[in-house]
Write a protein that binds this DNA or RNA. Sequence first.
DNA 1: ACCTCAATAT
DNA 2: CATATTGAGG
Length: 567
Amino acid sequence: MVCTTDDLLEWKDFPKGLRILLLDEDIHSAAEIKLKLEQMDYIVSAFCDENEAMEALSNKCESYHVAIVEVSTGNNLGSFKFLENVKDLPTIMISSTHCVSTTMKCIALGAAEFLQKPLSEEKLRNIWQHVVHKAFSAEEHPLSKMLNPTKETVSPVLQLAVEKDESKVQTSLVEIEDLTRSHELHHDQSTASDKFPAPSTPQLKQSGRLLGEGECQEQPNFPVEKDPMDHDGDAKSVENSCNISIENITAKVDSSSMLVNDSIKEEGSTSGSKSANHLHPGQKNKDSIISSKVEAGNPKKASTSHQNSYVTRASRKKMKVDWTQDLHKRFVKAVEQLGVDQAIPSRILELMKVEGLTRHNVASHLQKYRLNRRHILPKEEDRRWHHPKDNRHSTPRSNYQQHKPIMAYPSYPPSSHPICHVWGHPSSHLTPPTAQTWGHPSFPTWQTPENWQWKTFPGMHVDAWGCPVMPPSQNPNFTIPQMQNNASAGYQSLLDTTFEDSSRMAMIESNQLAEEVIDKAVKEAVDMPWLPLPLGLKPPSTDSVLFELQRQGISIIPPQNRNTTWQ
DNA sequence: ACCTCAATAT
DNA sequence: CATATTGAGG
């Protein structure tokens, strides 16, 4: 995004000073257009050579707000190339010939608009709208892309007068007309908002979630992300960055939804608005707008930001984040990347790279996530640890085990490669065939009960909410004897002090990871006796185990073990 | 400033 | 009833 909404809000006489990159092979045409644009107080850099233009772009990436590119009959390729390379920039294609297919192609490639020469002043005057559009849709509200741009962009304005009644929208549109006119006189921030809807940028995003929240048995989980590249983890990120946005977040909003919310977050909130909110908890949400109150309570702020006040305040509507499969996948990925115990909302948020998602959303989700883990893991633990037979032999330590593990996280080092996810961590070669992960009929949406159950299987890497990596169809009861005898055995020597009765270990529904868990726990207990025992243990990922083993100087792990283990 | 937990809303 | 959001406390 070249221009943020904040930028816009602080932009005094907005369209003026907009920096335009103009690319037209015809030097005369270029000069002509440049002149016109400059008459409107735009700042124009004209280029006749696309390479020069692109170079200029790369040199000072951020210094253009919009690009105007001529697509001449002879030079389609160059223009397209340029277009594809500047996706960040709202780009307006111009041409003297009218060709539908060319137009379509341009639009498909991300052009904001296609204008036919000659360019009237009318046409040129409004190009700033694309900047605004970009700013809004790209930055603050990726969500908006799935809504009708017009309606939604208008909404902040409408909110001044309208609650949530669609019918009133019509009437309010009139008001907007007025605003539009008045803005011509003095451009203030209202400009941004009232004219915003204007650009008729086609929305090519075809995906979007059509399904409400109903059953939708079909193939709800078919990766809504049309992004087949996703599986490569990160990397990739063409010019589109790897951020996901709209498609994967579904916000249920009423007509007057969000806009620029985020101004709320940092400065906007301050003490003023916040206290205002708190003072009247009674009416906190509902449909009431709190704008006036806020400004009253905070005169200073009001004065400086009154123009954007409605932009800021109008967004007070809550939007509900629908944690789709993909979102959740990202979430889990992030959490694992950080290490379950070190995963904090802000970091997760960063890693997820989902625009429009707030820290609160993540925190909330994290809360649930942890809750579920705690819920499921102790049960697992109980099953494993609470073998009545052994009570007699129990050392103080093992007595400890009887306490219900409440705190959750073992502190094994974060694994750089999460092993497998239920819904697939496609980058992992260990991932089961895709048919078994997501997209398969037997694995419907993550919201469906099946997926939401915290089934765990011994030895499986615990994903998401403590779900096993493997689809249930796989034999859940497999065991891995080898590990016990090899690495684990050596490893165990470190632990003898604590677990003298290895017979008990054998009894434990022997699977490798259970062993590892124990080993790990005991090791920590041994290493750091002053700390309370790690509670709520879960099977560590293979990576972390290997890491630990290596750290201990044990690097002899027959490769076939891993294969058999995870196969 | 942020994280967590608990309460509350949808 | 489950899940998301809001609010308060650490």
